[in-house]
Design a protein around this nucleic acid. Structure first.
Lengths: 345, 345
DNA sequence: CTGTTAGCGCTTTCAC
DNA sequence: GTGAAAGCGCTAACAG
C-alpha cells in the first residue's frame, strides 16, 4: 500500500453515480436501495452490485429533506444531575438505548441540557424537527422539560414518571412505591421497629415515591414514620444525612436509603458512630448498580432495571413514532420492584 | 389558554416565510441570519424580528445539504467495555464533551458500537459524511477503530492513546506510565518493599502503560516486579485477581491496582483473607472516580481527569475540523498524573 | 416495472 | 446592499 497515493474516493458517490454504474435511472436505483419495491430482479442486482462496489452511502441530509424524517432520536439528559457523574446510571441507560436501537438504523443524538438554557435550547431543537422523537431521562420538577416536550408535539417517552402528566405523557418506570414498601417489609421481617428513611431529591418522582412507600408500609405496621432525613443521590450527601439522622434519632435500628450511593454514605456514618451493620442497624438501599456490590458489606437493595427502562422507553418511542395519534397500543410501562438480599440486613 | 385550540404553529416556518414577513428576499434573510455580512441594519433588524416572532429554526438538513457540513460530531463508544456499565467513566466523559460543546451549536451523535459489527458500521457512518468529526473513547487493541478512523479521512481525536498511531492520530491522555510510577513511589515511601500490581486489560494502552510504570519504578528501586496478576476494570474481577495474588505471593505488603474498581475488589479479598489495610497491605488505585471516595477505607488513588480529557479532545477536534491539513497547531495532549492520598496507604 | 419531473429548504455565486 | 437563479442529493408522484 503506497503511502503517498492520494485518495481517489475523496467525494462520496451519489445516487446518480450508482444509477449510472448500474445502468438504470436514479429513481430505479432509489427504489432498489429502499426495499426494492417494484424493481426487477436484474435491476435490483445491478444496483446492489454498483452500490457495494462504489461504497455508496446515502446522504442523510438529502433524504431527510424530502422524507421529512431524520431517522434519528434524541436522548435528553439534564446535566446538573449529580447521578450523571456519580454512578453507573447513565451507563446503564446508554446501554439500554443502544440495545433497542441496534436493530434499527436510527441515530442517537445526545442533548445534554445545561443548567441555564435548559428548556429553551431543547425546545428550539425539538421544534426544529431535527429528530423524529425523544427519550427524556432523569428530569426534575422544575426543569420545564415536561412542558417543553408536551408543547413540541414531538413523540416523546420519559424514563421515570414525569411530575405531572398533563396530556398523558408516556413513560417507563419501576414501581418505586412498591419497591420502598418491599424494603420496609424486609426490615420489619428482620425484627426492626425503628425504621428511618434517607430520602432522595424530592424534585424527582422516584424520590417522592420512595418516601411514600416507606411511609405507607410503616403505617400498615403501626410503626412511626418520623425518622426522615433528606439527601442527594451521592455518597457524601448520604453520609452527612445519616449522621444527622443518628443524632436526631439515636434509637434507629433500620434504615431504608433512597439509593445505594446514599446507603454507602450511611454505612460510613454508621461505622464512624461505632454502630455495627446489620447488628445495630440494618440497611436497605436502592438501585443495585455497581455501588451495591462494591460496598462493604454488600448492600441489600432494590433492583432498578435501568437498562430495561431505557430500552423499553426507546421501543415505546419507536412505536409511538409510527402510530396514528390516539393509538392505544402505546402506553406507559411500569416494572415491578425486585429485592436483592445481600449482607446489610 | 384554551385547551382545545388547535396548534397553528404545526409546520415549522421556512426561511421564505421569514423573508416574506421581513419584506426582504430569501437571500438577504439568509445572510442576515448567518452573521449578517453585507446586510443593511434595517434589513437585519427586520429579519431578526421576523425570525423571533415566527419562532424560526433553520432546517439543518437543508443547510447541511448545501454547506456540506453537518454541524455535528460523533462520540464513538465501543459498547463491550465493562466500564461503560460499571463506573462513572462514561458520565465524566459526557460531561466533558458537553462542556466543550456548550458554546458551539454543534450536535452530538452517539455511536455505540456493538461487538459484532463494530468497525463496519462505524466505517460506513464515518464515510457517509454524517458528521464533521469524531471523538473515540475507550477503544481496544482489536477493535479496528484506529484503522477505520484513519481510513475514513475524517477529523478525529482519541481519548486515550491509540495502540499504534500509524498516521499521527491525535489523542488526549493522562500520563499513565508516570502515574503508575507515582503510585509505586508512594508505596515505597511508606516502607513497602513487596509491591504487586493488579493490571487492567492489556488491550488498552492505559492498562499496558500502568504495568510499565509499575515495572520501571520497581526497577529503579531494585525491587522485584514479579507479583503481577490481571483483571478487568471491575470490582468482581479485582477481587478474584487479588485472591489469586495473595495465594501466589503471600508476602505482598503493597498493591497498585490499575483502577479503583479493581482496588475495591482487592479490598474485599484482603478483608476476606484477614489482612488489614493499610496495616498489612497498603493499596493505591487509579481513576479517582466515585468508587475511590465511596470505598471503605477511602482509596489513595491517581486522579484520572476524565472530564478534562474529553473536553480537551473535543476542543482539539474542533480545531482540527477547521484547520488546513498539516496544521501543526493541533497536537495530542497528555496530562500529568496527580496522586490523591486518602486512607489506604 | 421504469424514467421523467418536481421539489424538500437552504446557501451561494452573480449581476445589478 | 440586494435579489434572481442555480443546485446540494434525494424521494415521490406520475405517466408511460
Amino acid at each position: 500500500m503506497p503511502e503517498t497515493t492520494p485518495r481517489n474516493d475523496a467525494a462520496a458517490p451519489t445516487l446518480d453515480e450508482v444509477a449510472a454504474a448500474a445502468g438504470v435511472s436514479r429513481s430505479t436505483a432509489s427504489r432498489a436501495l429502499n426495499g426494492g419495491l417494484r424493481v426487477s430482479p436484474s435491476a435490483q442486482a445491478a444496483v446492489d452490485e454498483a452500490a457495494l462496489r462504489l461504497g455508496y452511502v446515502p446522504n442523510r441530509a438529502a433524504r431527510s429533506l424530502v422524507t421529512r424524517r431524520t431517522d434519528s432520536i434524541a436522548l435528553i439528559i439534564p446535566e446538573p444531575d449529580e447521578r450523571l457523574l456519580s454512578d453507573a446510571f447513565i451507563g446503564g441507560t446508554l446501554r439500554g438505548v443502544g440495545d433497542a436501537l441496534a436493530r434499527t438504523d436510527l441515530q442517537l443524538v445526545l442533548l445534554l441540557s445545561r443548567k441555564n438554557e435548559t428548556a429553551d435550547r431543547i425546545a428550539r431543537y425539538l421544534r426544529g424537527g431535527h429528530v423524529d422523537g425523544a427519550v427524556i431521562t432523569s428530569h426534575h420538577e422544575g426543569d420545564e422539560l415536561e412542558r417543553v416536550v408536551a408543547a413540541s408535539s414531538i413523540p416523546a417517552v420519559f424514563v421515570g414518571r414525569p411530575f405531572d402528566a398533563p396530556r398523558e405523557l408516556i413513560y417507563t418506570d419501576v414501581d418505586n412505591v412498591a419497591g420502598a414498601r418491599l424494603a420496609v417489609e424486609h426490615l420489619v421481617a428482620r425484627g426492626r421497629t425503628r425504621i428511618a428513611h434517607i430520602a432522595g431529591p424530592q424534585d424527582m418522582t422516584a424520590g417522592v415515591d420512595r418516601v411514600k412507600g416507606w411511609r405507607d408500609a410503616l403505617s400498615d405496621h403501626g410503626l412511626p414514620a418520623d425518622a426522615l432525613v433528606h439527601a442527594q443521590f451521592t455518597t457524601a450527601s448520604g453520609e452527612t444525612a445519616a449522621a444527622e439522622l443518628l443524632a436526631a434519632h439515636p434509637d434507629v435500628d433500620g434504615i431504608f436509603a433512597a439509593s445505594d450511593t446514599i446507603a454507602v454514605g450511611a454505612l460510613r456514618a454508621l461505622a464512624a458512630a461505632g454502630r455495627s451493620v446489620p447488628g445495630d442497624v440494618a440497611i436497605v438501599g436502592y438501585d443495585d448498580l455497581d455501588a451495591a456490590q462494591a460496598s462493604t458489606p454488600p448492600l441489600t437493595t432494590l433492583h432498578n432495571p435501568v437498562v430495561e427502562l431505557a430500552a423499553t422507553a426507546v421501543e415505546q418511542l419507536l412505536r409511538l413514532i409510527d402510530s396514528e395519534p390516539g393509538d392505544e397500543r402505546v402506553t406507559s410501562i411500569v416494572f415491578p420492584p425486585r429485592l436483592v438480599v445481600r449482607g446489610t440486613t
